[in-house]
Nucleic acid binder design. Structure first.
Length: 291
DNA sequence: CTCCAGGCGCCTT
DNA sequence: AAGGCGCATGGA
């Protein structure tokens, strides 16, 4: 194993209620890999390795850091989890999900990477989304400075770079019918037709409307970007897993239509509905699935 | 082999 | 408004 301490930079962050593995592995981000040194990822072109410890997370980077605001924001280290969980409805399904996923957090990811990744997510399993994103970064991303002994890494390619790609180049990354969607959205973002960094200043509804103007972005993908990239904790992405969770946990004895489940989701989970959604999603994928 | 995967856009009623 | 279908690709 490489001596990370003798290279780059290192910083310890005290945390409570933070399950790093569950958070990085819960289908909200697609570029984290567990190595013997810890969780290795790229955040805005910066290589970082994260090690969970008792009541702290230790971060190693390949380059000296002027400040760590980028990581504090990405990991949402200043968010206290307990007051959020306390707003969830007090009922058996939600209690079970919270108990099974203690310490599960939401990340605040770079908006473009989040948007592009979720455009690639439709009708794909998480393992395959990771493969496509990895190929996209290898093919179009700028090389990143990596500590000695670690695998080469690449930044997530900018919208401007992807806007210059051809559809067939994108298809070489195995994204299939999603290629024209990603290309179309990259072009719109690159030319400034949609300003991703302004979304967080809008209302949830207006920001969602903006995102849904983009090709390949419907309600579900828009809500993922709002929740995982823009900080709208009330956005509630409804996918096949969440539909299954709502149906089986809340209406086990009667068949409920998807649009009725959608309405239930919109009205039932409170101001941090997005957190509740992530708990249900992860609970369903890890433990409850084995029913 | 068949079936399905953190959906969307377009086409029918 | 609401429901059905095709779209690439690969793993179970």
């Amino acid at each position: 194993m490489s001596s990370l301490g003798s290279f780059g930079d290192r910083r310890e962050f005290p945390v409570r209620d933070y399950d790093l593995a569950a958070t990085l592995n819960s289908g909200q981000a697609f570029r984290w890999n567990q190595s013997s040194a810890g969780w290795v990822g790229i955040i805005q072109g910066t290589w970082v390795c994260l090690r969970p410890g008792p009541r702290r997370i230790t971060a190693f980077t390949s380059k000296r850091q002027r400040d760590w605001a980028w990581l504090i924001s990405y990991l949402q280290l200043e968010v206290e989890l307990a007051p959020i969980v306390d707003t969830f409805p007090d009922e058996p399904p939600m209690r079970a999900a919270v108990q099974a996923c203690r310490g599960l957090r939401l990340l605040r990811q770079p908006v473009w990477e989040c948007l592009a990744s979720f455009i690639l997510s439709s009708t794909k399993q998480i393992a395959q989304i990771r493969q496509i994103v990895s190929a996209l970064c290898r093919t179009f991303g700028e090389p990143v400075v990596v500590p000695p002994g670690f695998a080469p890494e690449f930044a997530f390619p900018s919208a401007e770079r992807l806007a210059l790609a051809s559809e067939s180049e994108l298809r070489h990354c195995k994204m299939g019918f999603r290629a024209p969607y990603l290309l179309g959205t990259a072009r719109e973002v690159a030319c400034g037709s949609v300003d991703l960094n302004r979304l967080a200043t809008l209302s949830l509804e207006n920001a969602r409307e903006e995102l849904m103007r983009l090709p390949g972005v419907g309600r579900k993908i828009a809500d993922c970007v709002l929740l995982f990239g823009c900080g709208f904790a009330g956005a509630f992405p409804v996918d096949v897993w969440v539909l299954k969770a709502l149906q089986s946990l809340y209406f086990p004895r009667c068949r409920v239509l998807p649009r009725e489940l959608r309405h239930f989701a919109d009205t039932h989970f409170g101001p941090f509905a997005g957190y509740a959604q992530q708990y249900l999603f992860h609970y369903m994928r890890t433990t409850a699935m084995k029913v």
